[in-house]
Amino acid sequence: MNALEFLAWVRGPGLDLALAVFALGVVWRLIEIYTLGRKPDLAPPRRVPAASGWHTLWRRMLPPPGMFRRSPVSYVGGYVFHLGLAIVVFFFIPHIQLIKALLGLSWPGLPSPVIDAVTVVTLAAMVVVLIDRVRRPVKRYLSTFEDYFVWVLTFLPVLTGYLAVKHLWLPYTTMLALHILSAELLIALLPFTKLFHAFTAWGSRWFNGEINARRGVPV
C-alpha cells in the first residue's frame, strides 16, 4: 500500500469504520447509562430543580472558590488543552471541511499560523498535564493504564497533525494518513474509555445540579 492509498483508505473505509464504531458506541453507552432509571424525589423541592440542573452545566466550567489555588496545574492545564483541542479540532479549515462533508455544517476557520500556535500550546499543556499526573500523589494514585493510554490516544492526533502540517519527520501524505488514522482511533475508542466524559459530563452535571437544587443549593 502506498502513501496515497493509505491516505485514501483512512479517508474512506477507515473513516467509515471509525465513525460507525463511534456512533454504535455512543448510542449504546448513552442508552446503557441513562436507562438505568432513578427514583423520583418525593421531598418538596425548594427551587425549580431542572433549571438549576441546566445552570450547573455552565457553572461547573469555572473552578469553585479556593480550588484554583489548590491545584492550579489541573485548572490551567485542563482549560488550555480542552480549549486548545476545541480550537484546533473545530477551527482548522480542513477539519471544518470534514464536518461540512459529514454534517453539512460549516463556519469560518482560523488562519494557519493561529492554528499552529494553538497546537503547540495544546501539546505543551498536555505534556504538563501528564507530568502533573505522574508527579501529583493523588493523580498518580488514581491513575490506571487507561489514563495513560487515553492520554496517548489524545496526544497522537494533535502531534501527527502538527508534524504533517509542518512537513516534519515523514512525507506529508504519510503523516496526514497517520494523523487521520490516529484521530480515527481516538473517536472509535472514545465511547469505551473515560473519554466518554465528553458526553456524560453534561448528564452528570445536570443530575448533580438537579438533585442539589431541590434542596436549594446551587452547586
Binding site: 453507552r29 446503557e32 447509562i33 441513562y34 436507562t35 438505568l36 432509571g37 432513578r38 427514583k39 469553585p64 480550588m67 489548590r70 491545584s71 489541573s74 485542563g78 501529583r136 493523588v138 493523580k139 494514585y141 488514581l142 491513575s143 490506571t144 489514563d147 473515560k194 466518554f196 466524559h197 456524560t200 459530563a201 448528564g203 452528570s204 443530575f207 448533580n208 438533585i211
Partner: peptide, 22 residues
C-alpha cells in the same frame, strides 16, 4: 441502588483528583 446518575458519574470520572482537594 445503582441508578442512572451513578452510571453517569462513573462514566464521567477522568481521575483528575480534584475531589481530593475538597
Amino acid at each position: 441502588v445503582i441508578d442512572a446518575p451513578i452510571a453517569s458519574y462513573f462514566s464521567s470520572c477522568v481521575h483528575c483528583g480534584l475531589c481530593a482537594e475538597a
